[in-house]
Design a protein around this nucleic acid. Sequence first.
DNA 1: GAGAGGTAG
DNA 2: GATTCTACCTCTC
Length: 470
Amino acid sequence: MIGEETPAAPASRSLVAHVDVNSFFVSAERAFDPSLWGKPVVVLSNNDGCCIARSDEAKALGIPMGMPWFQARQYGRRYGLIARSSNYELYGDMSARVMELLGRFSAWKQVYSIDEAFLGLRCPAEQASMVGRDIRQTVWRGLGMPVGVGIAPSKTLAKLANRLARRSQAWRGVCNWMALTARQQEALLTSLPVNHIWGVASRMKRHLEQVGITTALDLREADPEKMRQHFSVVLMRTILELRGIPAIPLDPPQPPRQQLIFSRSFSTPVTAAAQMRQVMTVYAQQASARLAKHGLQAQHLSAFAQPSAYAGGVTDAWANADPAKNSFGGGGDGGSGEGGGWKTYGPQAPGSVGVRVRLPMPTADPVLLARAAHTLLPRMVEGTRYVRAGIVLTDLTPLGGQQVLELFVNPHERRGIGPLIEQVAHKYGHGLLGLGEAGLREGVVWHMRRDHLSPHYTTNWKELPVVKAG
DNA sequence: GAGAGGTAG
DNA sequence: GATTCTACCTCTC
């Protein structure tokens, strides 16, 4: 099937591989429960509300994305449909593992979503298919999850190729756009409705119909400049991308975030330590949530409080102040004795107080972070009216980057309290559930319904799967 | 700089 | 009885 004609474009340009895990959530569940293979499986949203991921078998039963579980469950009885509550600890961890493996194939990696990444490839177009197969095999052998790979000169075409790879068995999971003849490419683009192109959805489809564009090929042949004027630069880029001209660059590999700041001004000044304690607890939870969202852990926590700024105008100098003009003294009293003080932050309004704490281990756990933040309280000056406070997390490292021995994993982390609070907040709004005095403000404790939860195979030693040999 | 419109996953 | 939800981009005002 592969080209008796010459390839459609020169072989020397750089290529993009788009890799994604098939039915990622389901595949993550299957990786640890092989009994799920070949069966219709769905993963449910928070609170077991509706289906957010479906295996091919479940799709074949006609279960649409987002179908409420109360409707889907009848398939359970009739067709053996299996449901799993979403287990984001597991998915996040599996995702990190996939991305780590993909990183071996290119330093030029853009993690696009929990289950997708773009990789820049610098190899001759003829070799790219082999690389694609290697990627697929590596992830399968390493993690037991199937991935599809699309390879092309642009992101849009790479996504398109990935789609082809998945749709048609003939590709066996890997489609190299450059291995197709120009004629084959045109045939494929003709059969592809324009709204199946990345970045073109139903609205744009309707607009394009009015100017006679219905297929991917129609769009590719449209005049880029005219389309930019009529529609948008986004659409113009898509046209260029369809022509194999990269117009949506790969994000350059980003240096990991150095710090995460959570700070707010108060509506009314805080003077009492008890109140500040509550503020710090809430801020620690917020900061923890943000850390978790970015898959990070912190090694150091700093906490500060500022009194009302009669030293007018200094209040917002916080983030971009000159580190050399540091007005804070030594390290925090709850810290490790590492000293250091406020090296990263600059001049403050007179009366500001701060601490820096080295955490016993890199963590995103709200309980540990709150405990560390509370070391600010003894620093407060009696009678001072504080109008602003915050938490700064530094020395951030990727979550799960290194193995942590069971001895050092604190019990809150094991129970996944951080993610739980986040999920509840997500569902019912922030402030309903919290730690200690940050919680119970409404007098109601909600707990998420997760009746079909799989074990935390990779993030909880107690739930490690057991392999029996022999 | 906020808000609308659009899109992706 | 119930029905994901957020991030991000561009364009406009």
